[in-house]
């Protein structure tokens, strides 16, 4: 009898996305799921972590996901997504650097390490710009800077009140997106679906109330999405893009993608695609070991 594939499912809170993925995994006869709650997880450095063929990462905390992935991989376990992908996507500075290395179009980004140099960079770029924490998500703590007064004020607040990583100033040129951006979903080398996220607010995250609708996956959108995903290391990734007169610009790449609002509007069974990819990767990893 064929031995079942053992998949470690790294999680903390079980959101709708995790529930859908677990239902999809459990519908497969050849798969055994081991739930790994990062809140009760401990590692002994240098010792094997779990007897699983692969780990799929679905933690809500970036810091826990990042370090757990490193330790799983160090003990020889294949992870989806990989530690490298999590480290690139979890830090906007590293994402921008990776996109630039692959010549993927993106908004102008400057990085500075002091209030003074950040202000100088903003003045050179011209207003408006967006100040973003290098590590952060769901549109939290983004600041649209419209003039020098607000630049000085926000930079001072970040310097004095911000934690350590707010002292890295990630400055992105504001792109007029006319109330909407695009999120595309890439699994392996295929862009499986895309949505528009529309909002009256300049922040268009669904976590901030943006409304979703289907976005047709054109060849151009598919091409830039897959290239951006590859630049970030590849795997299961959600790419955020701006549609401009000059073509698409990649804003961010997300490695623990949320998709609950995107299944019905696109008609694409996203969990099925993800599980297929995880199982393919786990099979390959298992056969390489044996």
């Amino acid at each position: 009898m064929k031995k079942k594939l053992r998949i470690g499912f790294l999680h903390s809170l079980i959101r709708k996305e995790e529930k859908l993925l677990l239902q999809e995994f459990r519908s497969r006869s050849n798969v055994e799921i081991e739930l790994i709650d990062d809140r009760s997880l401990t590692f002994t450095i240098g010792e094997p972590a779990f007897e699983v063929d692969a780990v799929v990462e679905r933690s809500i905390n970036h810091s826990r996901a990042l370090h757990a992935l490193k330790l799983f991989e160090s003990s020889g376990i294949s992870c989806i997504n990989t530690y490298r992908v999590a480290s690139i996507c979890g830090d906007k500075l590293l994402t921008s650097d990776a996109l630039a290395a692959f010549s993927i179009p993106q908004p102008e980004v400057r990085v500075a390490f002091t209030e003074e140099s950040a202000l100088q960079a903003i003045e050179e770029m011209g207003y408006p710009v967006i100040l973003k924490p290098a590590v952060g998500s769901w549109g939290r703590l983004l600041s649209k800077i419209n003039d020098r007064d607000s630049a000085e004020s926000v930079l001072e607040h970040k310097s004095i009140l911000g934690s350590y990583h707010h002292s890295i100033f990630y400055i992105q040129k504001y792109i007029e997106k006319h109330g909407k951006d695009i999120r595309s979903f890439v699994v392996g080398d295929k862009c499986i679906a895309a949505i528009y996220r529309k909002s009256d607010h300049w922040i268009t995250n669904t976590a901030r109330g943006a409304v979703t609708s289907n976005c047709p996956v054109t060849d151009e959108l598919s091409d830039i999405s897959v290239r951006a995903a590859k630049a970030a290391g590849g795997g299961i990734l959600a790419v955020d893009l701006f549609e401009t007169d000059g073509g698409y610009l990649v804003n961010e790449v997300n490695y623990t993608m949320e998709f609950k609002n995107s299944i019905s509007v696109t008609g694409v069974n996203i969990p099925e695609h993800i599980v297929n990819y995880v199982l393919d990767t786990a099979y390959k990893a298992k056969h390489e070991k044996n």
């Binding site: 809170l13 590590v135 952060g136 998500s137 769901w138 939290r140 934690s163 490695y255």
Partner: peptide
Amino acid sequence: LEITGVNPYALAEAPQTEEDWGE
């Protein structure tokens, strides 16, 4: 709310959003 146990079922208020939560 968060399900904190399943045998028997137990419920608690869900944790507050932390700084590194999200995608």
